[in-house]
Amino acid sequence: DLSALRVEEVQNVINAMQKILECPICLELIKEPVSTKCDHIFCKFCMLKLLNQKKGPSQCPLCKNDITKRSLQESTRFSQLVEELLKIICAFQLDTGLEYANSYNFAKKENNSPEHLKDEVSIIQSMGYRNRAKRLLQSEPENPSLQETSLSVQLSNLGTVRTLRTKQRIQPQRTSVYIELGSDSSEDTVNKATYCSVGDQELLQITPQGTRDEISLDSAKKAACEFSETDVTNTEHHQPSNNDLNTTEKRAAERHPEKYQGSSVSNLHVEPCGTNTHASSLQHENSSLLLTKDRMNVEKAEF
């Protein structure tokens, strides 16, 4: 173990290094160091905050020279020094078990990766560091076993998940096959086929009936047209017969005018059967003409 005197000496050296690497504005270890034209180094955030307070150039807090945003430059070497100082402080805390008085939040800088452990060898070769390295080497064999167990647990979990997924996939297939086998029997399929065939026959029977009705309507229309044509021909046949009657009536009127007047009046009210309204109107006109002729003949006879 380190003596108290040596611990104090190391602590004083760390404090001196820390004062050199402090920012003059925030009085902390410089984060993202930036250098000016006057070779003074500050935190990048502190300098941008200072420049944004005034429009135009501002003055350096140490030498009062003008500073602009374009004049600022990043210093990589200074950032490396800060990183190495942080590593020294971490090693000091691990070796002594004491917390550094002016320690900052170094938890963000710590890294437990194997590459980081290899890099620590180049920091300080001390008894405390050696003991700590031995402890780490002793704890390393235990870690692979834990990793193997965790991997086995994960693989077993994956296997159970896969088996569950396969079961879920197989179950719908089985149910679907069961439904297909038990849903419709052979008799049901035959009945469905016969039902479809009967429906098709009914459709075939319905369509000819409609065509037959249309044919019957067409035949009825044709018969009505033929009947009207026969009526017209009958009226045409009746007209010459009426003319013959008129000639006979004229002759009778010349011989017996008194008797014919009474008979002509009675004939006005008689309509021949089986004739249309057109034929009756023609008869009325003929009878009126005959009456006028008879009157003329009677007057001539009187004179």
Rank of each mutant, 00 (worst) to 15 (best):
D1N: 09
D1Y: 05
S3C: 05
S3A: 14
R6S: 08
V10I: 13
N12D: 15
I14S: 15
A16T: 08
M17K: 15
Q18R: 07
Q18E: 11
K19I: 02
K19N: 03
I20N: 10
I20T: 09
E22A: 10
C23Y: 15
C23W: 00
P24R: 00
I25F: 08
I30L: 09
I30F: 11
I30T: 09
I30M: 08
K31T: 12
K31R: 07
V34F: 10
S35A: 12
C38G: 12
H40P: 15
F42L: 04
F42V: 01
F42I: 02
Q53P: 10
Q53E: 06
K54R: 11
K55R: 01
K55I: 03
L62I: 06
D66E: 13
D66N: 05
D66H: 03
K69N: 06
R70M: 11
S71C: 12
L72I: 12
S75R: 13
F78Y: 04
Q80R: 13
L81F: 05
V82F: 11
V82L: 03
E83D: 04
E83K: 13
E84A: 05
I89N: 09
I89S: 12
C90Y: 07
C90G: 04
F92L: 12
L94V: 06
T96A: 02
G97S: 12
E99A: 14
E99K: 10
N102K: 05
S103N: 06
N105D: 03
A107V: 11
A107T: 06
E110K: 00
N111I: 04
N112S: 15
S113C: 14
E115K: 04
V121I: 04
S126G: 10
M127T: 02
M127K: 15
G128C: 13
R130S: 13
A133T: 04
A133G: 11
K134I: 04
L136F: 06
S139N: 08
S139T: 09
S139I: 03
S139R: 11
E140K: 08
N143I: 12
N143D: 10
N143H: 02
P144T: 08
P144L: 04
L146S: 06
L146F: 01
Q147P: 11
Q147H: 14
T149S: 05
S150T: 01
V153F: 03
L155V: 04
S156A: 13
L158V: 11
L158I: 07
G159R: 12
G159A: 14
T160S: 08
V161G: 15
L164Q: 12
K167R: 15
Q168R: 13
I170M: 01
I170K: 09
P172H: 10
R174W: 02
R174M: 00
S176Y: 00
L181F: 01
S185Y: 02
E187V: 15
D188N: 09
V190D: 11
T194N: 05
S197I: 01
G199R: 14
D200N: 12
Q201P: 02
Q201H: 10
E202D: 10
L204V: 01
L204I: 14
P208S: 14
Q209R: 15
E214G: 14
S216I: 13
D218V: 14
A224T: 04
E226V: 01
S228P: 07
S228F: 00
E229Q: 01
D231N: 08
V232A: 15
E236K: 03
P240S: 05
P240H: 02
S241C: 08
N243Y: 00
D244E: 11
L245F: 03
N246K: 12
K250T: 01
K250R: 02
A253S: 01
E254D: 03
R255W: 01
H256Y: 13
P257R: 07
K259M: 01
Y260F: 10
L268W: 00
P272S: 07
P272R: 02
P272L: 00
T277A: 04
H278Y: 01
A279S: 12
L282F: 00
H284Y: 03
L291F: 00
K293T: 03
N297K: 06
V298L: 12
E299D: 08
E299G: 11
F303V: 09
